[in-house]
């Protein structure tokens, strides 16, 4: 391991639980580690993402005793340093930072976490051609992170993105680092042109490209795997769970997915998204239309995880290509 990183991990271990990429039989996963020697520095995309550490699969919103609601104590949020987040996933983190800006639970997790981005110049581009992972001069100033580590042939080059990050680096005895001031998620040159191109393809396309969506609806099993692995998927549902003693329990929230048929069900039984075609369109619409409209940033960061896990080989790149074509009529399809 690079000596600078050894120093950093040794320092962080004092205050933080360390989460870092670890090689397992099925790939590289962000995992809790005790021994920094286990960290994988290949900078390949991890199978899982930061999201389960900042927005757990299930979390308590309130404990209740009778009618009284009690918020979880601050000590229930782990102090964690998450190392090895790629630029692609930092772009997804931007979505979370916007979406959960007013969410006290996310903010508690985030405030207790140290986000450490990582890129190795030696690694190959792993994007799926949707967005690029290239590090450009202005890349880092549009990302939110605490520390960023760039592995170059000459050694690790560090950047700090927050005062928390600076403190961590100085505490570890790393004096040689660059300060990056976050200037917001959107580049000075304006909205991302690729985001805008995809926006036009997807927006209101359900009727226009009915055959594309219906075909996807036929193939898709609505298993929800894509939304589980997607680093920008964050929808949730809440439940009430009773405790062991009388009139006690918890209000919790858990990850949900718009692929499940219950997602849009209202009291009385009506489901507004009553077909898989409507639900898969809803998913694309969220990524390529709703998030850009709300926050001016892409809702798909091009990590390709949805493509890798889909059991019926639905490929987002192909969908975007199909939507760029003039809409097909039934006649044309029959001829084919």
């Amino acid at each position: 391991m690079k000596p600078e990183l050894t120093k950093l991990f040794a320092h962080l271990k004092k205050d933080y639980k360390i989460i870092a990429p670890v090689k397992k039989t099925r790939g590289i996963f962000l995992s809790r580690i005790n021994d920094p020697k286990k960290v994988c520095f290949s900078a390949e995309l991890t199978k899982n993402t930061f999201k389960e550490f900042l927005f757990p699969k299930k979390q308590t919103l309130f404990n209740f005793q009778g009618d009284k609601l009690i918020e979880p104590a601050n000590s229930s949020y782990p102090k964690q340093a998450i190392f090895g987040i790629s630029i692609i996933d930092l772009r997804a983190l931007l979505v979370y930072e916007q979406v959960f800006r007013h969410d006290p639970y996310y903010q508690n997790y985030r405030n207790n976490s140290l986000i450490i981005g990582y890129l190795s110049l030696a690694s190959t581009d792993q994007t799926f051609g949707i967005f690029e992972e290239r590090l450009e001069e202005d890349t880092l100033e549009h990302l939110e992170f605490d520390v960023f580590a760039l592995a170059t042939p000459a050694g690790i080059h560090f950047f700090s993105g927050s005062s928390k990050g600076r403190q961590a680096l100085i505490g570890a005895g790393i004096e040689n680092f660059e300060n990056i001031e976050y200037v917001g998620p959107v580049r000075e040159s304006g909205l991302d042109p690729l985001m805008m191109a995809n926006y036009k393809k997807v927006k209101n396309s359900f009727e226009r490209h009915r055959l594309v969506w219906e075909e996807l609806g036929r193939r898709c099993l609505a298993c929800g795997k894509c939304s589980l692995v997607c680093p920008t998927c964050f929808c949730f549902a809440s439940d009430q769970v009773f405790g062991q003693t009388k009139r006690t329990g918890r209000k919790t929230r858990r990850w949900d997915t718009c692929f499940y048929s219950e997602f849009s069900r209202v009291a009385g039984g009506h489901k507004f998204l009553d077909t898989i075609a409507k639900r898969i369109y809803f998913w694309y619409e969220h990524k390529f239309v709703r998030i850009p409209d709300e926050f001016s940033i892409p809702g798909c960061v091009g990590c390709g995880r949805c493509i890798a896990v889909c059991p019926v080989a639905i490929d987002l790149r192909q969908t975007l290509k199909d939507l760029a074509q003039p809409p097909k009529t039934m006649k044309q399809l029959v001829k084919k």
């Binding site: 969410d103 964050f234 809440s238 929230r253």
Partner: peptide, 19 residues
């Protein structure tokens, strides 16, 4: 409009219509 709602503050996605 009526839709399924969970958070009621525009986060959970259940009640989204377009943007």
């Amino acid at each position: 409009f009526e839709r399924r709602m969970d958070c009621a503050v525009g986060v959970c996605q259940h009640c989204a219509i377009g943007s």
